[in-house]
């Protein structure tokens, strides 16, 4: 049996909102040691989502037997919207489940809402992702990255990211004209989440689909900062850290034809 109780429903609500536009169906893997993990790939096979919610993400967590819960994320999102962000949220499943029980509790108002979501058999490829060497790692405020990704998408369907030891430059080249935004590395000791940190082994110049970057920044409400790891001619990794876990996106780059 699986029983995972979150202190607030907000984490799960934000996680599902962050991934449901990229992947429609996914398997939730549940185990006593790892908590809940997800690996899902979008239909175009360009964007991979990796979620990890350690048992420490939960107020209470037990999973007697490893379980795979196949979910339609649009349906899960409909149910998660029924609860308030500050409600307790508990996920419950039997050992051979055909449904997932989702319970919201508002202890102050003595309100309990229960929903049952039908599970599905989902056949999906699982990819092996080795810990990659990277040419540079950038940590910046998640909101600043989201603004650049959203703004630049209006100019072009591609966004070029150029990193040197003291700045990150985003460049868009579209039919109406061109644009660039430069963010300089800075350390803000009073408010470290406002810092822009660049750890550079080698300068990087990569191009990504603006559509996918806009899917990634849907995770912005989950964390103050995002860490981006870039390597020449390999997928980039975008990480939003959670309390006791992470939501990562791996995005395949675009290349000159």
């Amino acid at each position: 049996m699986l029983e995972g109780k979150f202190e607030t429903a907000s984490t799960m609500k934000k996680v599902i909102e962050a991934i449901k536009d990229s992947v429609k169906l996914c398997n939730l893997n549940c185990s006593q040691n790892d908590g809940i993990t997800v690996q899902a790939i979008d239909d175009s096979r360009v964007l991979l989502i990796a979620l990890k919610l350690d048992p420490s993400c939960f107020q209470e967590f037990r999973c007697d037997k490893d379980l795979v819960l196949g979910l339609d994320l649009e349906s899960l999102s409909k149910i998660l919207r029924q609860g308030n962000p500050e409600d307790y949220l508990t996920l419950i499943a039997e050992d051979s489940p055909d449904s997932l029980l989702i319970v919201f509790e508002d202890s102050k108002k003595d309100r309990i809402s229960e929903f049952s979501l039908k599970l599905m058999d989902i056949d999906s490829d699982v990819l092996t992702i080795d810990e990659m060497e990277h040419d540079c790692a950038i940590t910046l405020p998640a909101a600043a990255f989201a603004k650049v990704a959203r703004d630049m998408k209006t100019l072009s369907e591609s966004l070029q990211i150029l990193v040197t030891k003291d700045s990150v430059k985003f460049k868009a080249d579209g039919s109406i004209g061109t644009g660039s935004v430069i963010l300089r590395a800075r350390t803000n000791l009073d408010d470290t989440k406002e810092s822009i940190l660049i750890d550079l082994n080698k300068p990087v110049n990569l191009t990504f689909g603006a559509k996918y970057l806009n899917d990634i920044v849907k995770a912005t409400p989950l964390a103050d900062t995002v860490t981006i790891k870039l390597t020449d001619k390999a997928p980039a990794m975008f990480e939003y850290k959670l309390q006791g876990g992470f939501l990562r996106y791996y995005l395949a780059p675009k290349f000159e034809d």
């Binding site: 964007l47 990819l127 675009k254």
Partner: peptide
């Protein structure tokens, strides 16, 4: 004129 690459050319299926 840039071409989108696929994750499958970088990561192996498990």
């Amino acid at each position: 004129p840039s071409k989108q690459s696929s994750l499958m050319s970088f990561f192996g299926k498990r």
